[in-house]
Simulated assay, not measured.
Amino acid sequence: YKDVRLNSMFLSKPSSLALPPDSPLRAEDPHYEGIKRLMLTLLLFYSKQSKSIRGANAVYHRITSHVDKPDIYEVFQLEKTFKTTFSLLVLHMWLVLRRLKEEGKDGVKFGQYIYETYNHDVELRVSKAGVNLLLTKWMKELEKIFYGNIVKYDTAISPEASQDDLVNVIWRTI
């Protein structure tokens, strides 16, 4: 293992995970009244699916806000490359999707909306990294890596796994 400076991660005191009311990451649906509300209702703005899609975008934005912060790269002394950022993104996605799976059918469905947002974002990141030709091939490779890592993470926390398996898998994949 590299020289990891974990102490620098824990310099601040514990605080609530709730977002403050003025946080730019906070996502709330507008509460219109009268004709505006009627029009938005007719346009299915308040439908369960529309609310789920907006919620998935908000959750995914929170995931990327953590992955894109320089702190995690500094603490673990990681070079900020596409591969490293992608690996961290997959790890964070696994954590969120695993948690949502515990919520049953609705959680899995919500996770699917987040996954679709993730796919779109990864495609944009690949394009931004300079890959314009063979984009479909790249996306298929990244999808294989995504599912391969998910399986490795799940296996590492299975009852049969040893105590260090998850740490070792995370270290190897990132």
Rank of each mutant, 00 (worst) to 15 (best):
E160T: 10
V167D: 11
S162Y: 01
Y153D: 13
L133Q: 14
V108I: 15
K51M: 10
Y153S: 12
R26G: 00
R98Q: 15
E116F: 06
L91R: 14
K48D: 13
L42N: 07
S8H: 01
K13R: 14
F45R: 12
R62L: 10
V131S: 09
V96E: 09
Y147A: 02
E74A: 10
G34Q: 09
I157D: 08
Y46G: 05
S158V: 03
I145A: 13
L135E: 11
R54L: 03
T64P: 00
S16K: 10
L6T: 01
T173W: 01
L25P: 00
K140P: 04
S87M: 07
K140I: 07
L17W: 10
G111E: 07
L142S: 10
F86C: 02
K109F: 05
D3L: 11
T41V: 05
F110T: 01
R98S: 15
Q77D: 15
R54I: 02
F10A: 02
V75A: 09
W94P: 12
L142W: 08
N132A: 06
R125A: 13
T41P: 03
S23C: 03
L88V: 04
D22Y: 04
D106T: 12
L135G: 03
Y118L: 08
E116Q: 09
L88M: 13
D3R: 12
L142D: 09
Y153N: 12
N119K: 08
A161F: 07
L142G: 01
Y115P: 02
I35R: 10
V131L: 09
E160W: 03
S52W: 03
L97C: 11
A129L: 05
E79H: 08
K101T: 14
A156M: 09
E123S: 06
P24S: 01
R62S: 12
Y115K: 05
Y113N: 06
D68P: 01
K152D: 15
E116R: 10
L42E: 04
A161W: 10
M9H: 00
P21N: 02
T81Q: 05
E33R: 14
V169H: 07
S127T: 11
E143I: 00
F146W: 00
Y73S: 06
W138L: 05
L44F: 11
T85W: 06
Y32T: 06
I170H: 07
W171G: 03
H66R: 14
S52T: 04
K48N: 08
I63F: 01
P70H: 10
L142R: 04
N132I: 11
Y113F: 12
I150A: 12
L100C: 12
L134M: 15
Y60Q: 08
Y60S: 02
Y1M: 11
I35V: 15
R99N: 14
T85L: 05
F146V: 00
M139C: 03
E141N: 13
H120M: 01
V59W: 01
P14V: 06
S16Y: 07
M9F: 02
K105D: 08
L40T: 00
R98V: 06
R172Q: 14
